[in-house]
Amino acid sequence: MTDETNEVVGSNSRVLADITVKLMDGSIADSTKVSGKPSWMIMGDGSFSEAFEAYLIGAQVNDVLTFELPAKDAFGELEPDNIHFMDISMFPQDISIEKGTILSFTQANGMELPGIIREIEANSVKVDFNHPLAGEDVVFEIEIKRIAA
């Protein structure tokens, strides 16, 4: 890939953008504006849903796009198979296990996977490995900074 600038977002473009994700109540769930570091998106690489990419196709530098996506096209639906109950003894004693805490778990292949503590009852800990925004309809605000081939 080159850093050659294109005029519009195409199906294989690399797009540098400020991205803000809002919940339906208007609260901000995440934003690159907080860090001041826009994010690169690679169109067509499978990282984003077709519905998401469809809003960007044809956009130009400095365009600000605002669109709503249902959960299935944003971060996916909640998958019950991604919720696990673990015995509290499986957690290191030096960490605080509280509802809402996000912990990193090492998978058998060595990859790290974040899990959210959803409930603690007696010796059972309910850990949710779904994306934190899974099941949420969201609003995206995308400000295109740069388009590259």
Rank of each mutant, 00 (worst) to 15 (best):
I97S: 09
D94R: 06
P80E: 14
G100H: 01
N62C: 01
I97P: 06
V61G: 07
Q93K: 13
E77M: 10
D94W: 03
S96M: 06
F75V: 05
D94T: 12
M90A: 13
S89I: 08
V64D: 01
A71V: 04
D73W: 03
I102V: 15
I95V: 15
L103M: 14
P70Y: 07
Q60I: 07
D63Y: 01
A74L: 06
F75M: 05
P70M: 04
P70T: 09
L69W: 11
A74E: 10
D87F: 00
K72I: 11
G100S: 03
P80V: 08
D94A: 05
S96Y: 06
I102K: 10
A74V: 08
K72S: 11
M90F: 06
N82R: 12
D73T: 00
S96N: 13
F75N: 04
V64G: 01
D94L: 07
D73P: 02
V61M: 05
A71N: 03
F67W: 04
G76C: 09
L78K: 12
F85W: 04
I97Q: 09
I83Y: 02
F67D: 08
E79Q: 12
P70I: 04
P92F: 07
D73Q: 12
L69K: 09
F85V: 11
F67Q: 13
D63R: 05
T101S: 15
E98R: 10
D94N: 15
P80A: 13
D94K: 07
L65P: 05
I83W: 04
M90E: 15
E77A: 12
A71R: 00
I102M: 10
G100I: 02
I102R: 12
L78M: 06
F91Y: 14
M86D: 00
T66V: 15
I88Y: 02
P70V: 10
L103T: 05
T101W: 04
I88H: 01
T101E: 15
D63M: 02
K99E: 15
F75D: 03
E98V: 12
I88W: 00
I88V: 10
A71P: 08
M86K: 07
K72R: 12
D73H: 09
I95L: 12
E79V: 10
P80R: 09
D94S: 06
L65W: 05
D63T: 02
D73R: 00
H84L: 13
E68Q: 12
D63F: 07
D73N: 13
V64K: 14
F75C: 10
I95M: 15
E98Q: 13
G76R: 00
G76N: 04
H84T: 04
T101D: 14
G100A: 06
E98P: 01
V61K: 15
D87Q: 05
I83N: 04
F91H: 09
Q60L: 06
D94I: 05
T101R: 15
T66N: 10
F67E: 10
I102T: 15
